[in-house]
Design a protein around this nucleic acid. Structure first.
Lengths: 139, 139
DNA sequence: GCTTGACCTTCCAATCACTGGAACCCTCAT
DNA sequence: ATGAGGGTTCCAGTGATTGGAAGGTCAAGC
């Protein structure tokens, strides 16, 4: 299996596979006489694992850890759970942050007439930011 | 006012003020004879506007647009609202993405015993990903 | 006047996980 | 032999910062 076939089989682009190798996330692949990288089913499984972990938002460093645990027959599931919950906590923090932004802006947009006139609570908020200003019927 | 004072007054770091100037988000500041940047209250207000907009998660490009609208006395509030709602849509899309990750992982973690044993639904999911596997009492 | 320390200046590098492109080599079919 | 479609390396850019190095400037104290 060359890199293109491994890419198709794993869903990870050839470019990304080379990148993962370059940063040491995966070991260096074997090579043919002419320098082509060679992959087998095990390597493809590792790539699939990585892809799935990325889909769940794990960073590369944590994926390193998870790969290590995956390949450790004597791991404690508690360890895996801890890593996962750390990540969940970060996701939830980010969600809270984005939700606060979204709610604030949604409210300001609701208060904005959205017509030809220049008066706009959104710009007023950005310009002043302190105090809530005059109330609006959506508040 | 030099850049440090403008930074204190606006809440935007000196480093960032220079960066904003370098990318053309703000116009080039005036200079003293010895090359120090000089700022007045107007510039500080612009910086505060930018800071508030960044707090709401707007990207630099959209902030450019918002600054233009802010300084246009003949703007239509509809235009501002449109820009804001575009951003809200992006925020909500991101929130949905992160929430899906978080929910999936939270569920997997709930199914994980988290003890000394190696068996772990989180790793099982990452390794297999297809099919939900055996049910767990948290599902 | 000289030193000290806090400020200012520019430029370069790193972050994170990729992605794109250039320039060149290999393989296979026609 | 040629062309298409792989592969290879290396370099650069993404967004919005932050950090640091190397050097110029300012105000105060001695």
């Amino acid at each position: 299996m060359n890199i293109g076939e491994a890419a198709k089989a794993s869903g990870v682009s050839a470019k990304l596979i080379r990148y993962y190798e370059s940063i040491g996330l995966i070991p260096e692949a074997g090579r043919t006489g002419s320098g082509y990288r060679v992959y087998g089913p095990n390597e493809v499984n590792v790539l699939r694992f990585i892809k799935r972990a990325r889909t769940l938002g794990f960073g590369i460093e944590r994926i390193q850890t998870l790969l290590g645990l995956w390949q450790d027959r004597d791991r404690a599931s508690a360890e895996v759970k801890r890593v996962a919950l750390e990540h969940v906590a970060e996701l939830e923090a980010k969600i809270a942050e984005l939700t606060a932004m979204s709610d604030t802006l949604r409210h300001l947009a609701d208060c904005c007439h959205g017509d030809d006139r220049p008066e706009c609570p959104i710009l007023r908020d950005l310009a002043e930011a302190e105090g809530v200003g005059p109330p609006c019927r959506h508040g």
